[in-house]
């Protein structure tokens, strides 16, 4: 069996704000390790999970490690599909402008810089879940 035929679609669902619990950080650690397995990886940010991608996170006053910059490095790990739910943003008074700019270099398009954050309607999230082999939530 070739490696290619074992390639599966993995979706990581993130629904919690960062820092209050460790779930966001340890979920990101799975994504980083998982990248080495060359699967088809997508991340979904739903509900308070959208706060994981907020720009300007400053944890210096709470003693918790600020891992938010790591999301910006995901492109280097071939993790390039970060779906952010439009309704979750709107319900929280946020827009995509409030989030960190996250991009990747597309080697198949002359290394053009392209956005990794994809704002998706709830109905698109439903379709995204339905096409996965593995759904991980923490």
């Amino acid at each position: 069996m070739t490696g290619q035929s074992k390639r599966k679609k993995f979706l990581y669902i993130n629904r919690r704000a960062p820092h209050g619990t460790i779930y966001a950080l340890e979920s990101l650690e799975v994504v980083l390790i998982g990248a080495a397995f060359e699967q088809d990886v997508s991340l979904a940010f739903i509900d308070d999970g959208v706060y994981q991608l907020m720009a300007g996170q400053d944890t210096s006053g709470i003693g918790v490690k600020n891992f938010s910059k790591t999301y910006r490095a995901l492109g280097d790990y071939e993790v390039r599909k970060l779906y952010v739910e439009r309704e979750s943003l709107a319900e929280r008074g946020l827009t995509v402008e409030d989030l960190m700019p996250i991009s990747f270099e597309d080697e198949e398009d002359d290394y053009a810089e392209k956005p990794s954050i994809l704002v998706a309607d709830r109905s698109e999230m439903v379709r995204l879940i339905a096409e996965q082999d593995v759904v991980l939530s923490f």
Binding site: I13, R15, I129, Q132, D133, V134, V135, S137, F138
Partner: peptide, 8 residues
């Protein structure tokens, strides 16, 4: 079902 999705 084809997959299990936990809403934690």
């Amino acid at each position: 079902n084809a997959r299990v999705c936990a809403w934690l």
